[in-house]
Measured scan of single mutants.
Amino acid sequence: KELVLALYDYQEKSPREVTMKKGDILTLLNSTNKDWWKVEVNGRQGAVPAAYVKKL
């Protein structure tokens, strides 16, 4: 499985998103959308802005 690093804090704004903190390591589930990537963090799945994460 592919991992990404959170470059910034992000507070979810809808139920389809997830909150992450700078430095979090997230499991990347889907990166086909260039703006929003689906990730899993702390057992929750949701979208985060692609510009806020970097593939490891």
Rank of each mutant, 00 (worst) to 15 (best):
residue 5 L to I: 15
residue 26 L to Y: 11
residue 9 D to A: 07
residue 13 K to G: 08
residue 25 I to M: 06
residue 43 G to H: 06
residue 35 D to W: 15
residue 40 E to K: 06
residue 10 Y to H: 03
residue 5 L to M: 14
residue 50 A to K: 07
residue 29 L to P: 00
residue 31 S to I: 09
residue 15 P to D: 13
residue 27 T to I: 15
residue 34 K to M: 10
residue 25 I to G: 01
residue 50 A to D: 02
residue 2 E to P: 12
residue 30 N to F: 07
residue 30 N to K: 07
residue 25 I to S: 02
residue 16 R to A: 13
residue 33 N to M: 08
residue 20 M to H: 00
residue 38 K to R: 14
residue 14 S to V: 05
residue 1 K to N: 11
residue 55 K to N: 06
residue 27 T to F: 13
residue 1 K to E: 10
residue 35 D to F: 15
residue 6 A to N: 00
residue 16 R to M: 14
residue 2 E to K: 10
residue 39 V to P: 01
residue 10 Y to W: 10
residue 23 G to A: 03
residue 9 D to H: 06
residue 5 L to F: 10
residue 4 V to R: 00
residue 50 A to Q: 05
residue 30 N to S: 13
residue 43 G to V: 02
residue 23 G to R: 02
residue 41 V to K: 15
residue 29 L to T: 05
residue 45 Q to A: 12
residue 21 K to L: 08
residue 42 N to E: 10
residue 49 P to L: 05
residue 43 G to S: 06
residue 5 L to R: 09
residue 43 G to R: 04
residue 2 E to Q: 14
residue 16 R to P: 05
residue 12 E to T: 10
residue 17 E to N: 06
residue 37 W to G: 00
residue 50 A to R: 10
residue 35 D to L: 14
residue 36 W to G: 01
residue 20 M to S: 01
residue 12 E to L: 08
residue 18 V to K: 01
residue 1 K to A: 12
residue 35 D to E: 13
residue 54 K to W: 10
residue 16 R to V: 11
residue 55 K to P: 10
residue 44 R to V: 09
residue 54 K to T: 12
residue 34 K to G: 10
residue 46 G to S: 03
residue 5 L to V: 15
residue 17 E to C: 08
residue 3 L to K: 11
residue 13 K to I: 07
residue 20 M to I: 14
residue 5 L to Q: 11
residue 20 M to C: 06
residue 29 L to D: 00
residue 21 K to W: 09
residue 4 V to L: 12
residue 44 R to Q: 08
residue 20 M to R: 00
residue 36 W to K: 02
residue 48 V to S: 01
residue 13 K to Q: 14
residue 14 S to I: 04
residue 51 A to L: 11
residue 16 R to H: 14
residue 18 V to D: 01
residue 17 E to W: 05
residue 40 E to V: 08
residue 15 P to H: 10
residue 4 V to T: 01
residue 27 T to W: 13
residue 3 L to F: 15
residue 26 L to I: 08
residue 29 L to I: 14
residue 24 D to W: 13
residue 2 E to D: 11
residue 26 L to H: 01
residue 27 T to M: 12
residue 9 D to S: 09
residue 56 L to S: 03
residue 42 N to C: 12
residue 52 Y to M: 13
residue 52 Y to C: 14
residue 35 D to R: 13
residue 43 G to A: 04
residue 34 K to L: 10
residue 36 W to A: 03
residue 35 D to M: 13
residue 35 D to A: 11
residue 2 E to I: 15
residue 34 K to F: 08
residue 30 N to I: 08
residue 48 V to Y: 00
residue 22 K to R: 12
residue 35 D to I: 14
residue 33 N to R: 10
residue 46 G to N: 01
residue 38 K to A: 12
residue 38 K to I: 15
residue 13 K to P: 05
residue 20 M to W: 03
residue 56 L to W: 09
residue 17 E to I: 05
residue 32 T to W: 10
residue 19 T to K: 04
residue 41 V to W: 09
residue 20 M to P: 00
residue 46 G to W: 07
residue 32 T to E: 14
residue 44 R to W: 05
residue 42 N to P: 04
residue 36 W to L: 04
residue 12 E to W: 07
residue 18 V to L: 14
residue 24 D to H: 04
residue 11 Q to G: 07
residue 52 Y to F: 13
residue 30 N to L: 09
residue 44 R to L: 07
residue 23 G to W: 06
residue 8 Y to K: 13
residue 28 L to T: 00
residue 2 E to N: 11
residue 35 D to Y: 15
residue 10 Y to N: 00
residue 45 Q to L: 09
residue 14 S to T: 12
residue 14 S to M: 06
residue 55 K to W: 09
residue 41 V to E: 02
residue 6 A to G: 03
residue 25 I to C: 08
residue 11 Q to S: 11
residue 3 L to G: 03
residue 42 N to F: 09
residue 49 P to I: 04
residue 23 G to M: 03
residue 52 Y to W: 07
residue 53 V to F: 06
residue 47 A to I: 15
residue 37 W to M: 04
residue 8 Y to F: 13
residue 51 A to Y: 10
residue 24 D to M: 14
residue 33 N to E: 11
residue 32 T to H: 11
residue 42 N to A: 10
residue 11 Q to V: 14
residue 48 V to I: 09
residue 53 V to N: 00
residue 28 L to P: 00
residue 47 A to R: 15
residue 39 V to W: 01
residue 33 N to W: 07
residue 26 L to S: 01
residue 43 G to L: 04
residue 44 R to Y: 06
residue 49 P to T: 02
residue 5 L to H: 04
residue 31 S to F: 07
residue 6 A to T: 03
residue 11 Q to L: 13
residue 31 S to R: 10
residue 46 G to I: 09
residue 47 A to W: 15
residue 1 K to P: 13
residue 18 V to G: 02
residue 9 D to Y: 05
residue 9 D to V: 03
residue 23 G to E: 01
residue 2 E to F: 13
residue 29 L to H: 05
residue 21 K to Q: 09
residue 52 Y to P: 00
residue 4 V to E: 02
residue 32 T to A: 12
residue 56 L to R: 02
residue 29 L to S: 04
residue 27 T to V: 15
residue 54 K to A: 12
residue 55 K to T: 09
residue 49 P to Y: 05
residue 8 Y to G: 05
residue 16 R to E: 14
residue 55 K to F: 11
residue 31 S to L: 05
residue 15 P to N: 11
residue 46 G to R: 05
residue 36 W to V: 04
residue 52 Y to R: 06
residue 7 L to V: 08
residue 3 L to Y: 15
residue 9 D to F: 05
residue 54 K to R: 13
residue 39 V to F: 01
residue 6 A to M: 04
residue 53 V to Q: 02
residue 25 I to K: 04
residue 42 N to H: 10
residue 30 N to W: 07
residue 46 G to Y: 10
residue 23 G to D: 05
residue 4 V to Q: 01
residue 48 V to G: 00
residue 3 L to C: 13
residue 34 K to R: 12
residue 19 T to H: 04
residue 14 S to K: 07
residue 39 V to Q: 00
residue 21 K to N: 09
residue 53 V to E: 01
residue 8 Y to N: 08
residue 32 T to L: 11
residue 52 Y to L: 14
residue 17 E to F: 07
residue 28 L to M: 03
residue 51 A to D: 10
residue 51 A to T: 11
residue 22 K to S: 07
residue 33 N to S: 10
residue 24 D to A: 08
residue 16 R to L: 14
residue 44 R to D: 03
residue 6 A to S: 05
residue 45 Q to H: 09
residue 46 G to M: 11
residue 17 E to L: 06
residue 35 D to C: 14
residue 52 Y to H: 06
residue 40 E to I: 09
residue 11 Q to K: 13
residue 56 L to G: 03
residue 9 D to I: 03
residue 48 V to W: 02
residue 20 M to E: 01
residue 14 S to R: 07
residue 23 G to S: 02
residue 52 Y to I: 07
